[in-house]
Amino acid sequence: MKRFASSELMGPFLALLVITIFVSLTTDRFLDPTNLSNLALQVSVVAIVAIGTTMVILTAGIDLSPGSAIALISLSLALAIKPLGIPVGVAIVAAIVLGALIGAANGLIVAYLKIPSFIATLAALSALKGLALLLTNGVPVFSVSEGLTAVFYNDIAGVPLPLIYIGVCFTVSAVLLNHTQWGRKVYAVGGNPVAARLSGINVEAIQFQVFALAGVFYAVGAVLFAARLNSGSATYGAGMELQAIAAAVIGGTSLAGGRGNVLATLMGALTITIVQNAMNLNGIASTQSIIIGLIILIAVAIDVWRPQISQAIARARAVASRSTKAPGGPDAGP
């Protein structure tokens, strides 16, 4: 618990807690079981997509392509199952491979061709969307298959599948980032690419792998998106890149790279989804984007002012400990 309190999870957790309490006090139906389970389903896509975005941001990059990647993958998946008749399981595996390939293409361009990630993935945002439109001339594919919807709506022992996906994806990514050599290298590359190279790390390979792996998470998000709506469309996923970046940033991921925690991103995604949910319930959906924008601004401000804030906290602690410390009394400091 002490470790948690001092870790980077604390801030996002407190933010989430405050917002949850505020929303439950002000919104009647928020705590309804149906609304809560709805919330869990809602958060799954953005949370899983945000894992990929967080990894890219940790290497000091940015990825604007996930929204269009979701459009292309969801539509490809729907087409593979419905007109082509490929079994759902095989089609899903193929969709995830497609996501990895899209991510790998981004990674190739950014890491080896040295195109800044903002530009490279902005190009991908446009190109992938165009590809998706090309596939069916913009016509969505509806009513894909019962098998596909089951992927989203079924449960295991009463636990909805999306919750299980969230659990698996976040466990895997947290272990990868926090407990493996690879994860350590991701943080090193994001923190100081020159020093990383001089420490023997293949900086380009790490950047490439991160983009490719991010593509896998986007594909998982795309599959859930398609399964939830039992359809595929070139319009799906629009704006998802910004929601995912927002989730990462609200979770405390530093856009400068090297700082952040994927579990905090989950809290960021929850925060966004709860705000959206509450505003829908209160019928003020139109101001959603404004509120989300403000939250992002606050989160980034906290990141930018981090040194000053921690100094202020240290000063406050010093004052507090001086005033509470009786002569000869136990030292309450950490």
Binding site: R184, Y187, A188, A195, A196, G258
Partner: peptide, 21 residues
Amino acid sequence: KTDGLFFNLRAPPNATIAALD
């Protein structure tokens, strides 16, 4: 500062980064 250290990591990972094995 620019070529040697990782300010986003604590001291132990800074010392072990070239020999993670």
